[in-house]
Design a protein around this nucleic acid. Structure first.
Lengths: 252, 252
DNA sequence: GCAATAGTGTCTGTAAGACATTATGTT
DNA sequence: AACATAATGTCTTACAGACACTATTGC
């Protein structure tokens, strides 16, 4: 059980894979990279890589935390340097760990999957590792490498659920946003448009969800319409009462 | 990024650690083992061990899944053989993965934590690995080895939350149970006693939560009282509407 | 009989969903 | 003016929580 003798065991690798989500053109999109080697050469995959660790001069184990590895990979694949403005507002959370013995034919690989939510992520810049990286609408995603389709599915379910009881949606919009923009997040993630009037009242009546900035947008809609008030994210970590999605899984 | 060269990396070990919970004497209890070696010699810890993998004759990677490793460890530490009646009804789910570089002084160890919920778990039997294993009320747990206190805390929060929106509580009672017994689960896990009358009506009005067996208990309470109707777990996987805990985190 | 436990009925406040209406902007 | 979008108001239904009450059992 806790008798450590690593030599008895097949060496294992630990990676982080990122389900990075953003909303572009009103659609939920995921960051994918094209693989440049076997196996699954040319296939799309979630960005990811090894968790780094080593021993220092005195033989002590050193290395990065899982959270740090995920943040680093996300920065590398998007081509943004860590600390870039667009990266500081990214919400990162651990999703789950996948370790089926045959998930990678070369060796035993355990992948700790992370979820990343961000607003306004730019197109991945070339250079660095972001060779074939691109944002892809989730409904367009076809066959992925390894078990990444399963990881993505789990990630999507997690996001959809978390929108209900956390203010996570504010991670998908800018620092200042309108209620309509926030509603657009729910529409893109859930695939159903919440009722505008009820959504408006609901958001404002949930304590700590949003705070009024006291200003309005520069202009109304392109085809007319009143100018919308601006809000920032509030300090709540949980929504109470929750904002339940319609229909779905009422009976499941 | 996806360039595999394990030799460049410090070897890593992957373990599973189990937060096994049961209810005894009306209190939530967790399975702990006493460590028999350094570090943390003599300290209590969550049961766990290595995930096994090897290569077969043809050089292919073989091994157990994470779920299988968790089930195996649970069986070993409780002294129950896999397939034992008490083990077949155990609910096992992955909790999270912990990989701080200094969490184990000897080498880089990633621990995939699992949650296990069970009813009527016997005292761990001697022999096998269950040397110093015992059930301990969660409020009595003191200093644990490694980062196991954090893992336990995360596990407890997960259980408390899942009781709200899943029929998980039925995993803590026998195949047939009374509404009062079910209420006892909520009381033990949440630390607050739900209102008996409202709880009763609520459980019965939530579709798929429980199904009426059509019988009643052999006797009433030891100090008198009506005989209670018996129920089995229903087929719902999610409770709708949810059974929210009182007070807690209304504002947090 | 009394006390204890199981189970039901009633009332009130809150909130969700449907829908209508007002307010303010663009073309 | 016509239309679009933002924001608010009204109504109905569902449900949680408080509490009272009935039903059934052991002592």
């Amino acid at each position: 059980m806790r008798a450590y003798d690593p030599s008895k065991y097949e060496p294992a690798a630990v990676t982080v894979d990122i389900v990075a989500l953003t909303i572009r053109e009103g659609r939920l999109q995921v960051l994918l990279v094209e693989r440049g080697e076997e196996p699954y050469l040319g296939r799309l995959a979630l960005p990811g890589g090894f968790v780094r660790s080593h021993r220092d001069n005195k033989g002590r184990v050193r290395g990065e935390t899982l959270d740090a590895a995920a943040a680093r990979e996300l920065a590398e694949e998007t081509g943004l340097v860590p600390g870039h403005a667009a990266l500081t507002r990214v919400h990162l959370e651990q999703l789950a760990t996948y370790g089926a013995p045959d998930r990678d034919p070369r060796m035993r690989v355990f992948s700790v999957a992370y979820l990343a939510f961000a607003a306004d992520m730019p197109d991945p810049v070339s250079g660095g590792d972001a060779a074939g990286a691109a944002w892809v609408p989730v409904e367009r995603v076809k066959r992925l490498a390894f078990d990444h389709a399963e990881i993505l599915a789990d990630g999507l379910e997690r996001v959809r659920a978390k929108l209900e009881y956390t203010p996570l949606a504010t991670s998908f919009v800018g620092v200042e946003f309108t209620i309509s923009e926030l509603r657009g997040v729910y529409a893109a993630v859930w695939g159903v448009e919440p009722h505008a009037g009820n959504f408006h009242r609901k958001v404002l009546s949930t304590p700590g969800f949003v705070v009024d900035v006291g200003e309005v947008t520069e202009r109304g809609g392109s085809k007319g319409g009143r100018r919308a008030r601006l809000y920032r994210a509030g300090d709540a970590t949980l929504l109470h009462p929750a904002l339940l999605r319609p229909a779905a899984e009422a009976t499941s």
